[in-house]
Amino acid sequence: MIEFNDVTYSYREEDHNALDHISLKFRRGEWTSVIGHNGSGKSTLVKLLMGVLEGYTGEIRIDGEVLTEENLQDIRRRFAIVFQNPDNQFVGATVEDDVAFGLENNGVERDEMVRKVEEALRAVNMLEFRTHEPSRLSGGQKQRVAIAGALAMEPDLLILDEATSMLDPQGRRDVLEILGQIHKDKMTTIIYITHDLAEIGVSDHAVVMKDGSVINEGTVDEIYHDTEALISSRLVLPFTIWMADRLLEGCYMLYDELVERL
């Protein structure tokens, strides 16, 4: 569905490439995680895709069509993105107003809007908070509202750009759980950007980035299996993987299996 072909980009103030000849595919209906340390280029990837940054070499194709300045507006309508800071993307004065914001921009009829807002809030378990103001919500709840705002647009692709990094463990778990549910129910295509290896467990496909290059790609099993590549990318192995790597000669498993095999 989305293809990066030999894409290179560098920020003006830096001498090295933020993205260095990247070729990648994101497939429809899949949850793809992009993992990397700060400065690995993972967020640059999203910024190029959303047209926030310009001036790269190579091409980006969406459903076979090359991304250009002309079709950018149209493409933005089909993508939705949730950013890192829960406070700075909450536009509406209340939960329901915020979810409706994107729909209002697209000129959706009011009756349809009401239905979609309700549906989206139900999907993220926030319906009972619909009239709450953002100052009365926790970070995790705000991010769930942001996800609802994205879902209400019925996007072809949902991007989460380090959306859990500012949350406490409970908020993080809630957001991941809800995303998993949505992905399962609606087959929504998800690109999940993170620096935390512990968060990629649910994804169908994962990409490891380091210094602007893709250094590993595959299923979660395959990614976890190559612990050396992960450690050299300045990533931290989750507890279970770390234990399995040290005691059972490195194979990916869930916690219960670890207990079983030790």
Partner: peptide
Amino acid sequence: EMAVAMEVRGYHGEKGRTSY
């Protein structure tokens, strides 16, 4: 950050906008 978030959510002023 708010400006970027509004832009990617399709805000482009009043034209063609409905109201919740």
